[in-house]
Simulated scan of single mutants.
Amino acid sequence: MTCTSLNWGSKLLIAALLIAGLSADSLTAAETLKVFVLAGQSNMQGHGKVKADPKANGGQGSLEWLVKESPKKADFKHLVTDSGDWVSRDDVQIWYLGRQGKLTAGYGASEEMMGPELGFGHVVGNAIDEPVLLVKLAWGGKSLGQDFRPPSSGGTVGPYYQEIITQTKTVLKDLPKLFPEYASHQAELVGFGWHQGWNDRINQAFNDEYEKNLANLVRDLRKDLSAPNMKFVVAETGMTGPTETHPRALSLMKAQAAVAEYEEFRGNVAFVGTRDFYRPKEESPSGQGYHWNSNAETYYLIGDGMGHAMLKLLKPASK
């Protein structure tokens, strides 16, 4: 900004700011809050066990076991403080259907569980200079074919598609009340993470139209959230691991990957393979294959993978 383009009043104000040690950009630049929506069904809710329960495979596969006992514990030391408490990030906040606060362990399906939000939030929080808000919208047992059905797919619009739109807009509108520390920030909806698929994977009709519905979901969410440039990351529904052979499961995962290859989505939609994150029940708190055996490392790695994929799409905005 040059003084030759300003009137004398503006020049005097800028001079006063400069004397006070502020730049002319302080006149107009508002701080930005980067907002990411994380949506899906029960595996986006998150069923990874936080506490090590001796009755659940001796605690193996829980988040507490991961940071204290696992051979990989050095890779996860950033999740705990020197005193052993869970880290709460000042620069990453989360709102999950009325539960809110600083990102930490315990924002899963219950306060005793965690999901992809933890890994995702740590990755984007480390890379982005501005503060981050995660808006998590997830409900168990929901299909894309019916519950999340986007308008462009025809038929009845899914009630949970409508919930995503309504809840996201409400959080952004109520931001000064929900997060007073960000009252002066300009909220920018920059990314959307999707982890869902089990209910379509077990229904042939939903399975057959999954690719069409997912592509329409991306288009319709961008339109209805007034965020045409919003980046979109799809995490594979690979909860039965790399040895999966069921035709419907393979078909659905193929459909999820295919959408990211559409010409219109190149560079703005990414697919994250997750089957390698699967941990067998012998290494996990449960044998619930549809919930990734409740393994905390698995859920963390899904979020971590989604976060890194999002950063590639947002490359100019990250550090």
Rank of each mutant, 00 (worst) to 15 (best):
D129S: 15
G121W: 11
Y160R: 03
M114K: 08
E64P: 09
K102C: 11
G84K: 15
G155V: 09
Y161W: 06
L137I: 15
G115R: 07
G98T: 14
L66Y: 14
Q162E: 06
S62W: 06
T81F: 07
G61T: 12
Q100F: 09
S143L: 06
Y107T: 05
K68W: 09
G115P: 10
T156Y: 00
D85Q: 14
S153I: 08
I165C: 07
S88L: 01
K136H: 04
G98K: 08
K142S: 00
A109F: 11
H122P: 06
V80L: 04
Q146W: 00
R89S: 12
F148A: 07
I94P: 01
A109H: 15
V157Y: 10
H122Y: 10
P150A: 00
L134G: 10
Y160T: 14
V124A: 00
Q100K: 09
K77P: 00
S88W: 13
P116C: 04
G125A: 10
D129G: 05
W86C: 12
S152C: 08
Q146N: 04
H78C: 05
N126A: 14
S88P: 01
G145K: 03
K142M: 05
D75E: 12
R89Y: 10
L63M: 15
S70P: 08
T166D: 03
I165N: 02
L133A: 04
Q146D: 06
T81I: 07
G98L: 08
I164A: 00
H122N: 08
V92D: 07
L79C: 05
K73H: 13
K142I: 14
E163N: 02
K77M: 08
K72F: 13
I165P: 04
K68Y: 13
T156E: 06
M113R: 08
D85N: 12
E117S: 11
K142N: 06
V80P: 07
G61F: 07
G108T: 15
N57F: 01
D90S: 13
G140T: 12
V124M: 09
W139G: 11
V124C: 12
R99F: 11
I94N: 09
V132H: 11
G125I: 12
V92I: 10
I128Y: 04
D82L: 14
L66P: 11
K72H: 13
L118E: 06
L63P: 03
K68Q: 15
P159E: 13
Y161R: 07
R99A: 05
G121C: 13
G101C: 00
K77V: 02
E112Y: 05
G106S: 00
E112R: 01
S110N: 11
